[in-house]
C-alpha cells in the first residue's frame, strides 16, 4: 500500500469512526433521538427528499444563486480591479475602504437587503455578490500591479499595439492571480448564500434546513445539514480540481 493510499485510508477511517460513534450513541440510547438523528437515518431522509421530495429543486435554486453571484462579482470585480490599478490615486484611496468592508461583519446588514429586495433570492444574491466582489477586485488590482515590466518592454520592442499588448501579454500574466481571487470569491459566496438562505429563510437548501428546524423535524434537520455539508465539500473539491487544471 502506497503512502498516499494509507493516508487516505486513515482519513476515511476517522470519518467512519465519527459516524459510527454517532450511530451507536443513538441506537444504544446514549443520546435521545430527539437531539441527534442516526447518521444512516439522516442519509435515508436525504435520499427520500432527493427522490420524492424537492431537495433537487432547492439545490438548483442554491446553485442558481451562486452562479448569479459569481457572474456579478466577476464582471464587476474584474472591471473595478482594472480601474483601481489604472487610476493609481483612486486605487490607493479605495483599497482601505475595501479592506475595512471585508473585515467588518457586513452580513449582519442582511435585513436592509430584505427590505430592499423583499424576502426573495434577489436579496441573497445582492448581499452575497459583495462578498465575492471584494477578493476579485483586490486580486485583479494586485495581478495588474505585479506584472513583470520586462514582459511589457518586450511587447513594446516587438511593436505590439496597445490592444495586442493587453491581449497577448497582460491577460495571460494576470490570469492565475485573478483565478485565485475567483476561487476565494466562490468559497465566500458559497458560505454567504447558504448562511443567508438559512438565516433569512429564503431560497434553496439553507431554507429547507431552516424550515425543518422551525418544525422540529430532527431527522430532516440532520438530512439538510448533511446536504449542506456535502454541497460545500463538493464545491471546494471542484474548485481545487479546476485550479490544478488552470495552473497546468
Amino acid at each position: 500500500m502506497s503512502e498516499s493510499t494509507r493516508i487516505t485510508a486513515w482519513r476515511w477511517g476517522i470519518i467512519f469512526a465519527v459516524v459510527a460513534i454517532a450511530e451507536s450513541a443513538v441506537r444504544l440510547g446514549w443520546i435521545s433521538s430527539f437531539f441527534l438523528a442516526a447518521p444512516t437515518r439522516a442519509a435515508v431522509v436525504l435520499w427520500e427528499q432527493i427522490v420524492h421530495g424537492n431537495a433537487l429543486w432547492l439545490t438548483a435554486i442554491t446553485l442558481l444563486e451562486i452562479t448569479a453571484c459569481l457572474a456579478i462579482s466577476t464582471v464587476v470585480g474584474v472591471f473595478a480591479g482594472f480601474l483601481l490599478w489604472r487610476y493609481k490615486l483612486i486605487g490607493g484611496s479605495y483599497e482601505m475602504f475595501l479592506a475595512a468592508l471585508f473585515s467588518s461583519p457586513v452580513i449582519l446588514a442582511y435585513p436592509i437587503f430584505l427590505v430592499t429586495f423583499g424576502r426573495t433570492s434577489a436579496a441573497v444574491i445582492a448581499l452575497s455578490s459583495i462578498f465575492g466582489l471584494i477578493p476579485i477586485i483586490i486580486n485583479t488590482k494586485g495581478a495588474f500591479q505585479n506584472v513583470n515590466p520586462i514582459l511589457l518592454q518586450v511587447g513594446a520592442s516587438m511593436n505590439l499595439t496597445r490592444k495586442q499588448l493587453f491581449r497577448h501579454i497582460l491577460v495571460p500574466a494576470v490570469a492565475p492571480t485573478i483565478f485565485s481571487g475567483f476561487r476565494l470569491a466562490l468559497t465566500y459566496i458559497l458560505k454567504s448564500v447558504l448562511g443567508l438562505e438559512y438565516v433569512a429563510q429564503v431560497g434553496g437548501v439553507g431554507m429547507w434546513l431552516s424550515d425543518a428546524a422551525f418544525m422540529f423535524k430532527v431527522e430532516e434537520v440532520y438530512a439538510g445539514l448533511l446536504g449542506t455539508i456535502t454541497l460545500s465539500i463538493l464545491f471546494l473539491y471542484l474548485i481545487n480540481r479546476s485550479e490544478v487544471l488552470v495552473r497546468k
Partner: peptide
C-alpha cells in the same frame, strides 16, 4: 487531518445552529 479541517472550514457554521439549539 489537514484536508478534513480545510473542508470543514468551508461549511458555513451558522447552519449548525439548529443542532446547537436542540
Amino acid at each position: 487531518v489537514e484536508p478534513l479541517i480545510l473542508y470543514a472550514a468551508v461549511v458555513p457554521k451558522i447552519v449548525i445552529f439548529p443542532v446547537f439549539i436542540l
